[in-house]
């Protein structure tokens, strides 16, 4: 049978082509274009080849130094908040009630921080931590701790980390809770019959069954914390000094503060690439974990 040839379908795809072109492809290509050039304003551009990328990877230059230092801070930040939020989220999910009205109450309370806009979270903690008028800062200082996130690196870090934990542990907890709820009762009953201790139940049933949601939680939290901008910007502004300046903050400084479009473009491409790679690794891990096929008996 001859295939009917009808090219009209192209018209149906065209709107998507246009939307994607203008919203993604063209801006991205503009950035690629910028990353190869230097500008001194007035819309005058000079070709620079891969110069910015070379600088980016060379810690002795200004651009490379700032990029690598902020990247290190970013990775450290992500590692710390993952190390806190994932176990804490699991503990919260495990201690949540399984039925009754208290379930709804817990879910609402957990969802609250997630509903607050980033800059408001920043503002809340910025005021909360102030030694003069903030509840936390005032109390800590009157208890004899010399706490001042504006002046002390460690205090600034602690504030930013605690703020992120406060804001996002709920997400991990909610995901874990969903994972826990999907475990059939028979597993717990079987474990009871097998004489499993609380810890053995956690290790043999709950943790493996939460596997998937935990992967999603880690992925989401890594991405979010790696791209964090608003909250530390509002609370510490990247300071004191550069101690809480993350890659995104550095990027905005270069692009909008110094108007170094070429450097900023190169940096944002590198930034994007890192996120893409991490995404890909996670995606591969997750799909591989899901592709387990049962092996027929006797096939071995």
């Amino acid at each position: 049978m001859d295939k009917t040839i009808n090219q009209k379908a192209w018209f149906l795809v065209l709107p998507v082509f246009l939307v994607v072109a203008f919203s993604a492809v063209l801006p991205l290509m503009t950035v690629v274009n910028y990353s190869m050039q230097d500008t001194f304003g007035n819309n005058q551009f000079f070709w620079n080849g891969v110069g910015w990328f070379k600088e980016l990877l060379d810690p002795s230059t200004d651009l490379g130094g700032r990029f690598l230092a902020s990247l290190g801070r970013n990775l450290f930040f992500s590692a710390v908040i993952l190390a806190i939020e994932v176990p804490l989220g699991i503990v919260v999910a495990l201690s949540m009630p399984r039925e009754g009205w208290s379930v709804a109450a817990c879910l609402v309370i957990l969802a609250l921080p997630l509903l607050i806009p980033w800059n408001v979270v920043g503002t809340i903690w910025q005021i909360f931590g102030r030694p003069d008028i903030g509840l936390l800062g005032y109390v800590l200082n009157h208890l004899g701790f010399n706490y001042n996130y504006v002046a002390n690196d460690v205090d600034a870090w602690v504030t930013v980390i605690v703020m992120d934990v406060w804001h996002w542990t709920s997400l991990v907890a909610l995901l874990c809770y969903a994972g826990l709820k999907s475990i059939p009762d028979a597993y717990y009953q079987a474990a009871q019959i097998d004489g499993a201790s609380r810890w053995a139940v956690f290790k043999a049933i709950q943790l493996p069954k939460m596997n998937r949601v935990l992967l999603i939680a880690v992925l989401l939290r890594f991405m979010d914390s790696f791209m964090i901008y608003t909250e530390p910007f509002v609370v510490t502004g990247g300071g004191p000094g550069n101690s809480t300046t993350f890659v995104s903050i550095e990027l905005v400084k270069i692009a909008l503060g110094q108007f170094d479009l070429g450097k900023a473009a190169a940096l944002s491409l590198a930034y994007n690439l890192i996120i893409l790679i991490v995404c890909w690794v996670f995606y591969t891990v997750m799909t591989n974990a899901g592709s387990e096929r049962p092996v027929k008996e006797g096939a071995a």
Binding site: P184, A186, Y187, Q189, A190, Q192, I193, G195, A204, I205, P208, K209
Partner: peptide, 17 residues
């Protein structure tokens, strides 16, 4: 349940993944 010497097999197979 732990202290009774009972074994039970459920409708859906329970195995530790």
């Amino acid at each position: 349940t732990q202290k009774r010497n009972i074994a039970q097999v459920f409708q859906f197979p329970v195995i530790y993944d």
